[in-house]
Design a protein around this nucleic acid. Structure first.
Length: 201
DNA sequence: TTATTGATTGACT
DNA sequence: GTCAATCAATAAA
C-alpha cells in the first residue's frame, strides 16, 4: 500500500480531516510495524482559530512544524506527560493541521500493550490523542517528520467510508477558546467503538 | 521574573 | 461526578 500523496494534504483542512477517517497510520519501530485506522480527528485552522497553538499567527519553536507544508507531523508535549500528534495541512507558512484523537488498532497490538499497560481492553489502546501516541511510540523525535517516510506514514482507506457515516461535533477540551470553542471541527466515524468520546462534551 | 494554563489521562468518591 | 499528576509554553508583571 502506497502512502497518501502530498496533494492529499494540500486540500482545505476540514476536507483533509474528513478524508483521513478510515485511513491507516503506520509506525515502524525496531523492525516491527504498528498500524491503526483513524476513526476520530479534529481540524485546527491557524491564525483565526483561538483554539489553535498557532492562534494570532503565533510562531514559536514548539509550533514551528505546524508551518511546514502539508504531509508532515506536528507532535507536541502537553500536561507535562502526554504527546499529541497532528497531520499538517496546506502550503508552507499556513499553520493548519488535523489532530488525531482516535485510532482502531490493527497491527502490533502486543507491542502497543507494553506501552499502554493501563489499557484494560484493546478498545482503550488508542482511543485518545495521548493514548495513541503512547501506543505507537510517537514523541518529540517525530515532530516535523514527513508522513511518507520509513518510520511514519499514512496509507489510503482500506474500508469504504460514506459521507453519512461521518459525524461532526465541537472539538474536545477547547472550552476556553472563545468563539472558536463551539466550532464543528471534530469528525469521527459514527458508532465506531474506538472513538474516545461520544457526540457530547 | 513569576503565575497561569493546558488540543489529557487515570484514579478515586 | 471530582481531582491530582507534572512541566513547558505563554501570559502577566
Amino acid at each position: 500500500m502506497k502512502p497518501l500523496p502530498r496533494d492529499f494534504y494540500l486540500n482545505d483542512t476540514v476536507s483533509v480531516a474528513r478524508a483521513l477517517l478510515g485511513c491507516v497510520l503506520w509506525r515502524r519501530l525496531d523492525g516491527e510495524l504498528l498500524a491503526g485506522r483513524i476513526v476520530e480527528a479534529e481540524a485546527y485552522l491557524g491564525a483565526n482559530d483561538m483554539a489553535s497553538h498557532a492562534r494570532r499567527g503565533l510562531r514559536s519553536p514548539r509550533v514551528e512544524s505546524m508551518y511546514l507544508d502539508g504531509g508532515h507531523a506536528y507532535v507536541y508535549f502537553t500536561y507535562g506527560m502526554h504527546y499529541c500528534m497532528n497531520v499538517v495541512t496546506q502550503e508552507a507558512d499556513i499553520a493548519e493541521a488535523v489532530l488525531l484523537r482516535g485510532l482502531e488498532p490493527l497491527q502490533g497490538l502486543e507491542s502497543m500493550r507494553t506501552r499502554r499497560p493501563k489499557a484494560k481492553r484493546d478498545l482503550d489502546l488508542m482511543n485518545g490523542p495521548g493514548k495513541l501516541c503512547a501506543a505507537m511510540a510517537i514523541d518529540k523525535a517525530l515532530d516535523g517528520a514527513p508522513l511518507n517516510g520509513k518510520t511514519l506514514f499514512i496509507t489510503p482507506r482500506d474500508i469504504e467510508v460514506r459521507e453519512e457515516e461521518i459525524a461532526v461535533s465541537a472539538r474536545i477540551g477547547v472550552e476556553n477558546s472563545g468563539e472558536a470553542a463551539p466550532w464543528p471541527l471534530r469528525f469521527y466515524l459514527r458508532g465506531n467503538k474506538f472513538v474516545g468520546h461520544g457526540p457530547m462534551r
